[in-house]
Design a protein around this nucleic acid. Structure first.
Lengths: 213, 213
DNA sequence: CGGGATCCCTTAGGATACTG
DNA sequence: CAGTATCCTAAGGGATCCCG
């Protein structure tokens, strides 16, 4: 770590020495969704070389951002309390980067963890509070997530209620989340296909999850 | 930019493709303090190679984060509105990294812009509101800043009032900002030297600028 | 089969010199 | 002062192999 520090004494440089290396912040992002195994992280970061993943995990562990937990014959990586403090920063980066998204290119994939974090950064708690509890199953491109919105809180992954609306869309979730493509028009044009549930609930979804473009 | 993107379609990856490269976020940090010329940026980032600075500036400009403004025979770089939206993220990174700071090493320097941002991330507006307007001139190691605290607002750099307290300290500003080293003890031990003004004002400073360790 | 380690090669980045 | 040009090293990409 001697050659790649910044030679400066300050909070921002220190943070970047820890999570500024290539791929590091994406590992943190995926672990914010939940604890993950080595192979799950590798699958969620399609282009990461395995040696880089291994060394980033060691570095993040040495810095106290993550720790490895042996759990019933397999090893689980999870964020420490200090690592979880990066959540607002990662969500902020997601919201900021969202505005710079172009159209999805053919070689780009959407991973479930990436989608989960984007939806969390789009989540509007105060709007959500105005609706009754709602469970969604959403698919964008090849990535699917289930979400349960319960008042001002958002639960990702595990549902304890039946799904109220499940829908599938193409990889371009930008226009739906930005409000650029209204829910009813998305359905009418076929850009969003409602699989189960009331199609009116898609409008509730787009009000609950909103990111400025 | 083809080989160094992440092959993923999402907000966080897009953000990191723009400001995730080495040195990029530090350029943004320094420009958050104010517009800067090429040479000023180079001076504020002591170890950046000049070719890297040049290419980062081009990339950030292409992404709409900064723009070059010719001003009276010299070129000024400044953040665009989109670039300024990174402010809470940079301040958050600063506060997060602050907690991981070790003792300053001999080869590490403190630059004025880095110090300015660290103090901004430490600024406590609600505490500041309880004090009358106060102007400080602070020096840590080789970096000096002037600050004017006016109610809940903080002005860096230009003062329109006489300095109420000026002091000098070593490069280790951690213990003072974390509250680990109380103001009076810092003065008694000589770790902080009050140059002009009432030494009691140092306590006001440490209450106004506070970062958890 | 999960969790890495090893290999080779490519490219970004560091150091320094140079130019309009 | 504001950058280019060059050369070289080290980090990252890609594939394969290893070990419990």
């Amino acid at each position: 770590m001697a050659a790649r520090d910044y030679g400066e004494y300050g909070g921002v440089t220190r943070a970047l020495e820890i999570v500024g290396e290539r791929w590091a912040m994406l590992i943190v992002r995926d672990l914010l969704v939940g604890p993950r195994r080595y192979g799950e992280l590798a699958a969620g970061l399609p282009r990461i070389p395995t040696n880089i993943l291994a060394s980033r995990l060691k570095e993040l562990q040495a810095a106290g951002v993550i720790h490895r937990v042996p759990r019933s014959r397999v090893i689980i990586y999870e964020l420490t309390a200090y690592g979880r403090e990066l959540e607002p920063i990662v969500l902020g980066l997601g919201a900021w980067g969202f505005k710079a998204l172009d159209d999805p290119r053919a070689e780009q994939v959407i991973t479930p963890d990436s989608l989960a974090i984007d939806l969390r950064s789009a989540f509007q708690p105060q709007v959500a509070s105005t609706f009754p509890t709602t469970a969604y199953a959403a698919r964008f491109g090849s990535a699917a997530v289930t979400l349960q919105v319960d008042g001002p809180t958002l639960l990702l992954g595990e549902l304890d209620a039946p799904v109220d609306l499940s829908f599938a869309a193409g990889p371009d979730f930008r226009r739906l989340l930005s409000g650029d493509l209204p829910a009813q028009r998305a359905i009418a044009s076929g850009e969003v296909e409602v699989l189960t549930g009331h199609s009116e609930l898609l409008q509730r979804f787009t009000q609950t999850f909103r990111l400025a473009a």
